[in-house]
Design a protein around this nucleic acid. Sequence first.
DNA 1: TTCCAGGCGTATC
DNA 2: GATACGCATGGA
Length: 268
Amino acid sequence: MEYFIKGNDIILKREDLDLRQTLDCGQAFRWEEIPSAYEQTFTGYRGKMPLTVSQDHDRIIFHDTSEDDLRDIWAGYFDLETDYSALKERFSEDEHLKRAIEFAPGIRILRQLPEETLISFIISQNNNIPRIKGIINRLCEIYGGFPEISEMGESDEDTLSPLRAGFRTKYLLDCVQKVNSGEVSTDSIYDMSLEEGSEYLKQIKGVGEKVAKCVLLFGYHKMDAYPIDVWIKRVNEQYYPHGLPGCIKGFEGAAQQYLFYYIRSNGV
DNA sequence: TTCCAGGCGTATC
DNA sequence: GATACGCATGGA
């Protein structure tokens, strides 16, 4: 990976990455765009690790970050080693995907922390994105950053009541209990197939097919996961009544995210 | 006031 | 296995 250092910034050139499209397309909930002298600047977290990152054209600027953290943490997080150009070329065989990719060519699938993704998408069910962000922000205020599930062992209805998460609180508590008891091992899922991982995660109350697929895609980078929410359900009905196009095979999750962002922005 | 939001658990057939 | 319904909360 080529980059150069200027003061406290590490700068790299990267096509196929648009911060706004990637960080604000509904896969992550803890990034906020802030005013700056750059075209875009976002501040956010991976777990408890903060980052401020900017973009001007194809220049990505990591602020106040060490080279070690860039290589060990953020390059993976932003999936910088994956060739999205090749992926998009394949996807463009399909007219609907071609249009979605032209609309937002800078979406990438982040590699988020599995437990952060699991908690976040349990909260996401039957909920809207601004409110999901609010609940997660309040969770992070309680724990001084996004908690490891092991840190939540003492939590109960009362300690989580400030979240105002509604009926999802009991699902969070079941998740905490099962992970901390070892009944669910989040590490073991890396080695599972899509269907194995999905069935395994669905042991947790509040984790159904859709949430499981989101966790597998955004937390474990299982790119063949294709989470079907209310929006993608409309996509399938309108665009793909006879099945998904063959050109997305193996990377259904990335295709899903281009389609999700497009349809939410433009309608079916 | 009613409807909806990156769904899921439960009951019922 | 399919379908209907309730669910906490808050914004439109």
